[in-house]
Structures are given as C-alpha cells and as structure tokens.
Amino acid sequence: MLLAELVVPRRMDAAEVIGAGLEIAALGMGHRSIAAVLGRADATVRGWIRRFKVRAEDVRRHFTVVLVAVADDPVMPDAEGTPLADAVAAVVAAHRAATTGWPGMLTVSRWEFAGRVLGGRLLTSPSIAS
C-alpha cells in the first residue's frame, strides 16, 4: 500500500498534522502550546520538532532544489531566522511552485507533497531520500 504522502513512518499522526505542528513551531511557538492546539501529547510534538531540527538543513536544501526544478521563475524564500523555519519555508515555496506549474497538485497539501518528495522520510533519517 502506498501511503508515503499521508503518513510518516513510525508515527501515529498523518503528515498533515505533523506538518501543521512544524509550521506552528516555525512561527516560534513552543511544543507544549503546539500540543495543546493540535490535541497531541507534549512529548509527541517535542519529538517531531527535535527530529525535524536534525534534518532541517538537508530538507531546506532538498526543497530548494525541487523549487528550482519545478518553477519557471523560482522565488527563493527569505531566511526565516532558524533552520527549522527555513526548512518549512522551503517546503512551502516548493509546493507553491508545483501547484503553479501543475494545477492538479492543488488537491495535494504541502505536507503530503513533502511526504511524496521525501518518500515518507520527513522525520525518519538524517539523509534525504534520493
């Protein structure tokens, strides 16, 4: 069964829920507040954020390459101030470029898109899927 874009391996939550938590973390909110907003355990959200921080620079680079590959005239995201926020901005920018080039992608959320691009490895490994 192919669910890479919907689920994150070894996680109980959908990529969309984890992505929402990462987007909120990119805004500077702490894991306890995010957990309350999403109705998840503090430790769960803290784990997502810690795991993503380990991968943030690789994710940022990977999605910057994706952005350049799919956009006719790529607009690079501004530096957001933290590696986590920069990585989230790169995912958002690459997804925006993909939906501009392929309107059918509008039915795929940015975190489902990220799951597809990374083969479901949003949080599982420090190396980007090839």
Rank of each mutant, 00 (worst) to 15 (best):
V68K: 14
D78Y: 00
A87G: 09
T100I: 09
S127K: 04
V66Y: 08
V75Q: 13
L118R: 03
V68N: 11
G104Y: 00
R60L: 04
H95S: 14
T107S: 12
V117N: 02
A97T: 02
A97P: 04
R116M: 15
R121F: 07
F113P: 07
L106C: 03
V92I: 15
P126Y: 04
V70W: 07
V70E: 12
V91T: 10
F52K: 10
A71L: 07
V54N: 05
I128T: 14
G104T: 03
K53G: 12
D86S: 12
P126H: 02
S125N: 13
K53P: 01
L106H: 10
P103H: 01
G101L: 09
M76C: 01
V108W: 01
D78I: 00
V66K: 11
V88E: 15
T100H: 05
S125P: 00
V70T: 10
E57H: 02
L67H: 02
H95N: 14
A56W: 04
V68R: 15
V54C: 05
A89R: 09
R110F: 01
P83F: 01
W111G: 09
H95D: 14
P77Y: 04
A56L: 08
V75C: 06
L84E: 12
G101S: 07
P103E: 05
L67Y: 05
D86R: 12
F63R: 02
D86W: 13
W102M: 10
P126G: 04
T82P: 14
A114G: 10
T64S: 13
A98S: 10
P77L: 09
R60E: 15
D73G: 00
M76P: 01
M105W: 05
G120F: 06
F52N: 09
D58C: 06
G120V: 06
A87R: 08
A79Q: 12
D72P: 00
S109H: 05
R116N: 11
W102E: 13
P77S: 06
V88G: 12
V66Q: 14
A90L: 11
D86M: 13
P83C: 03
T100F: 01
R55L: 13
A69V: 06
I128L: 11
A90Q: 07
D78S: 07
R51L: 15
A85R: 10
A90E: 11
R96L: 08
A79G: 09
V68M: 14
W102I: 09
A89W: 08
A90I: 10
